[in-house]
């Protein structure tokens, strides 16, 4: 485990660690505690409003870290046998970190509002963020990433608005956990396939 965390830290710059892992999430969690969870107490859609911000942050910040990694090939880590395992560890720890932050959001909302749907919404945030990451890791620019993050937020909010008050069942929780596991495995596998394919130049340089 320690080795995996070390691999993850090898990918992250100081700026990302300070702003992306500590300060911005702290700001979001403070806002959740003081504002969104109160909204959640009164109206369920408060959970989705807070969730929308967390979702935007998760997708947009990923650009900093693994942006464009599935696109035209990155040339690093290929001179060593330890390169791919390093990448795999970093990806896995990144997903674990996202899950943890989503659960912290749910926990804060739950402590104040006592609504079990907080955990469902947290899992939905995780699912949506990781699902979109499969797409955004192909994107070559800042604007595209930002707009995809906005798009995810819109879809999430519309879904939340359409299904208000229908969340919180045990069955739903089980389904969401299973889906989260499946999506996580697929995401890591997806990036590694692209990296392995680049050894054989699977993707021709067609001016993509």
């Amino acid at each position: 485990m320690k080795k995996k965390i070390k691999s993850y830290l090898a990918f992250t710059s100081n700026g990302y660690r300070l702003w992306g892992l500590v300060l911005i999430p702290a700001l979001l969690f403070v806002a959740t505690y003081f504002a969104f969870s109160d909204l959640a107490y009164d109206h369920s859609w408060g959970l989705f409003v807070g969730g929308a911000f967390i979702l935007f942050y998760e997708i947009f910040s990923d650009y900093w870290l693994f942006g464009g990694i599935c696109g035209r090939q990155a040339e690093y880590l290929k001179t060593s046998l330890g390169g791919l395992p390093l990448l795999e560890s970093a990806l896995a720890v990144d997903l674990m970190r996202r899950f943890l932050y989503a659960m912290v959001f749910s926990a804060i909302c739950y402590t104040k509002s006592r609504k079990p749907e907080a955990f469902c919404v947290g899992l939905m945030i995780y699912l949506m963020a990781v699902g979109m990451l499969n797409i955004t890791r192909y994107l070559p620019g800042v604007i595209q990433q930002m707009m995809t993050a906005f798009l995810a937020v819109v879809v999430f909010s519309l879904y939340g608005a359409a299904t208000l008050g229908m969340h919180g069942g045990i069955l739903e929780l089980v389904i969401l956990i299973a889906a989260a596991l499946a999506v996580s495995i697929v995401t890591v596998w997806h990036v590694l396939q692209r990296m392995k394919g680049s050894y054989y130049e699977k993707e021709s340089e067609k001016g993509n």
Binding site: G15, Y63, G71, Q73, E75, V142
Partner: peptide, 11 residues
């Protein structure tokens, strides 16, 4: 170099 993603960075 963060603004253009990993795919645009040269080694």
């Amino acid at each position: 170099k963060f603004a253009f993603g990993i795919s645009m960075q040269r080694t």
